[in-house]
Each structure stands twice: as structure tokens, then as C-alpha cells.
Design a protein around this nucleic acid. Structure first.
Length: 169
DNA sequence: TCAGTGATTAGG
DNA sequence: CTAATCACTGAG
């Protein structure tokens, strides 16, 4: 199947996020081994104005890659234990990302990275050219639902209640 | 419901 | 330098 190209990722995060549902995440899990997972749940984080987005405080060493044009990997470490896998979207200079919350094999974003070995070394990886992580299209029909984002109670009523979590169903 | 765990960040 | 915070998970 075809690897998703640059044009897929450089669109607005609210277009890209739901379209990632059902697509295939491919990760190198051994010297010559690649694992494939169907993406089942994601969340959209959209720009400095989004009070739930890491970029709400502007550019920092951690959020730097979010300002790159879409197609890069943004990973960060949280709660002292877990790596979170995100996909940068949008044009250069507009910090947006999609958190990959789950696959058909993994419930929860921390479990996904723990099981696949995704860690800080993936920060900045280019999904359109990397030899160890990318996403493939498949011609399955896309069906999804929307809900509120999880774990962002600090962001205030307006942003907390955005229906920017998308999941298969 | 709630503790664990340590990088990240803002502030002094 | 200090201290608060955190896009989570698993146990009870």
C-alpha cells in the first residue's frame, strides 16, 4: 500500500486527524521486522490559541517540531513513564499535531509506544522518508465518531469541550 | 479513586 | 537553582 505523502499532512489538523482513522501505522520493531497497526483513535491539537495544545506557550525546545510543516513525528515523555506519539500537521509555522491514542492492538497511547519501542529518538522523524516509521493508506471506508479530548482539564471550558477526539465506530 | 515517576517549563 | 505540572496507566 502507498505511503501517505506530504500533501496529506500539510492540511489543517481537523481534516487530517479523522482521516488517520483506519490507516496503517508501520513501525520498525526489529533489525528486519516491521509491525503494522490499524489506527483506531486520535486527538487533534491545533495551534497556539488551543489552550490544550503544548504550543499554547509558544515555541520551546520540546514543541519546536510542531512548527515544522506536516509529516514529522512529535514525541514527548510524560508522567515520568510514557512516550506519546504525535503526527505534525499543517503548514510551516502553524503548530498542530495529532496524538495517536490507540490502534487495533493497543488501547492507550502509552501502551502503543511501550510495545513498539517508540521513544525520544523518533523526535523529528519524517514520515514521508523515514525507514523506521510511516503511515500507509488503504482503501477501506472510513467510519468514525467524535468526542471530547482526554486528560486536558487544565485547558478551560472552551477548549476542554472541543469534539476533537476521533475514534473508530 | 489515586499514586508513581522524571522531563519540561517558568520563575527567582 | 527550585518547584509545579503533566495529551497516562494499573491497581484497589
Amino acid at each position: 500500500m502507498a505511503r501517505l505523502d506530504r500533501n496529506f499532512y500539510t492540511r489543517d489538523v481537523l481534516e487530517v486527524a479523522p482521516e488517520l482513522i483506519g490507516k496503517t501505522l508501520v513501525v520498525k520493531t526489529g533489525s528486519k521486522t516491521f509491525s503494522r497497526f490499524q489506527i483506531t483513535e486520535v486527538e487533534a491539537y491545533r495551534g497556539e490559541e488551543d489552550k490544550a495544545c503544548h504550543a499554547r506557550k509558544g515555541r520551546t525546545p520540546r514543541t519546536g517540531v510542531m512548527y515544522h510543516e506536516g509529516g514529522r513525528v512529535y514525541v514527548y515523555f510524560v508522567y515520568g513513564m510514557y512516550w506519546m506519539l504525535n503526527i505534525v500537521t499543517g503548514p510551516e509555522g502553524d503548530p498542530q499535531a495529532v496524538l495517536i491514542r490507540g490502534t487495533a492492538r493497543h488501547k492507550g497511547p502509552g501502551i502503543l509506544t511501550r510495545e513498539t519501542g517508540i521513544n525520544g529518538s523518533f523526535y523529528g522523524e519524517d514520515l514521508t522518508g523515514s525507514d523506521r516509521i510511516w503511515i500507509e493508506d488503504n482503501n477501506n471506508p472510513i467510519k468514525y465518531k467524535a468526542g471530547k479530548r482526554i486528560g486536558i482539564d487544565y485547558s478551560g471550558e472552551e477548549w476542554k469541550n472541543k469534539m476533537w477526539r476521533f475514534y473508530m465506530g
